[in-house]
Amino acid sequence: MPDLEQAAGENRVQSSTGGRYFLRFTRAQRGLHAVLFTTFLVLAATGLPLRFSSTPWAIRLAQEVGGFGAIIFFHKLCAFVLTAAFLIHFKNVMMRGLVHHEKGIFWGPTSMVANWKDVKDLFGHFRWFVGLGPRPQFERYAYWEKFDYWAVFWGMVVIGASGYAMWFAPFFARFLPGWALNAVLVVHGEEGLLAILFIFSIHFVNTHLRPDSFPMDMVIFTGVESEEEFKTKRQQEYERLSMEGKLESRIAAAPELWLIKFSRIAGFTAIAIGLVLLVLTLSAIFL
């Protein structure tokens, strides 16, 4: 996975119309997000009917796709794909950090690892919410973005492990106590529910539906954002790059029209499915 400066350089074309565009996500990162949200939607759509198996919509949905047999097939298929994606990502991060000694992977302004600034940003953000202070200036990854990342990271480990423990229960029973087989379903179900509720409400709003990005932040699909967006959303990174003289290296081509259109369709489809699942989940919990 090349770093952003490198990746941007590969297809650097000065935009003829409008302002400059800057690369935020590499192709591999966008691909990872696409795999992640596609499999997550299927996992949620096939997991929820199991979690709320006595609700009419769950039974109906199961019947439409061919009953539990079909549901568990798609659930396991996506689980496998997501596991593979997770392992590839994990290997890449480890290679970049430990083998190639790339700077900024495990620490620093561009790292996903939380630091003291994130704590200050969190409190600063809250102060700004209630009008007690200025808006914090963020680096490449803001604290809620890091939380999203680590929530998904932890979630995949927990849900994945408990899922595989159920999938291969007799094997896992060789080293797990008996009650753990009961517990893995509770863990899998609750953590899955948390992930679904979090992604389909908090992540959707924080990242896509909030006024700054409404109705959808396209950067995860196109990989690039406008200079104005870059400056307002991640002022500190913009300024740091300017000072270091590296800003130019991040300039990328404006997204092509087909990619914008395709991203809109894919993104809105995902958000729509997510919101439907959220409504179904909330109705199953509270009705």
Partner: peptide, 15 residues
Amino acid sequence: YRDTFHSQLGALGGY
């Protein structure tokens, strides 16, 4: 029983 995977599986039909 309905808390368990057996039931979740069973309630959906087709299995």
